[in-house]
Amino acid sequence: MDKVRYFIRVVIARAYVRVIGAQRELSWVIGDTLLPFLSVSAFVLVYRAMKAPPEYTGFVVLGGLLMTFWLHMIWTMAMQLFWEKEMGNLARYLMTPLSRPALLLGMALGGIIMTSSRAMIIYLASRLVFNMRFQVDEPWMAVGIFIVTLAALYGMGMTLSSLFFMAGRGVLYGMQLFYEPVFFLGGFYFPVRQLGMILATAAAALIPTTLGLDALRQTMLGAYRTGLLRPSVELAILTAMAIMFITISIIAVHRMEELGRRYGKLVLKEQ
């Protein structure tokens, strides 16, 4: 019982840093929402010019929303352990008896709360500017898909966090290569099915948001029905992905620590 309480304490404490940080630096929120909203707007206008059916506005907005989560996961969550080391906090954390997965979960949860507030702003702005409305047939299904998508996405983030940490600085450059293709494969602004079945399957297998987005589009856009698979099937796959990533992340963080201790990489040499 004490262990559980300690676990939760750590999760909340670490998440709190993010949440309070977001509140105190409002300028970040604006910066982080303005750009995604502009790119959403651009695609909405393109689809409208092409005389696409009205549900394509919601289609693009959903893509924009999930993209903010994806970007946060890849740029912040996946880099978290790396940056904590650079800042000198990682050693402070690892020298305490805290549960390592709790620390990662706290980072993820803080990120989710912060990013959700940004996504909310983008959603409200889209409602206002484009008079966009979601049309949800099965609300619980949609909520379930959303939660499981985030679990899979951040499970991936927690895993990458340890992997990127072990890879070190090189990752910063590697990320640049990663960036564009994922944008494309993610299907944030067009139906993934357009990629062709093979590429689409590959994308869905690697990127949790691809599948999640596809499922959400099928449940939240009324007439839109050009999904990859049935939403319930996608939900099942996402659940499996979430479990897999979270399990791997627990193994990876312990492995990361063990190797870091052995090779002297947990703390910057100069510190």
Binding site: R5, Y6, R14, G21, T96
Partner: peptide, 15 residues
């Protein structure tokens, strides 16, 4: 975080 919040953060991390 403030000075006090930072210290609190670490007490929480020690449980």
């Amino acid at each position: 975080l403030t000075a006090r919040e930072n210290l609190r953060l670490f007490t929480e991390l020690y449980g």
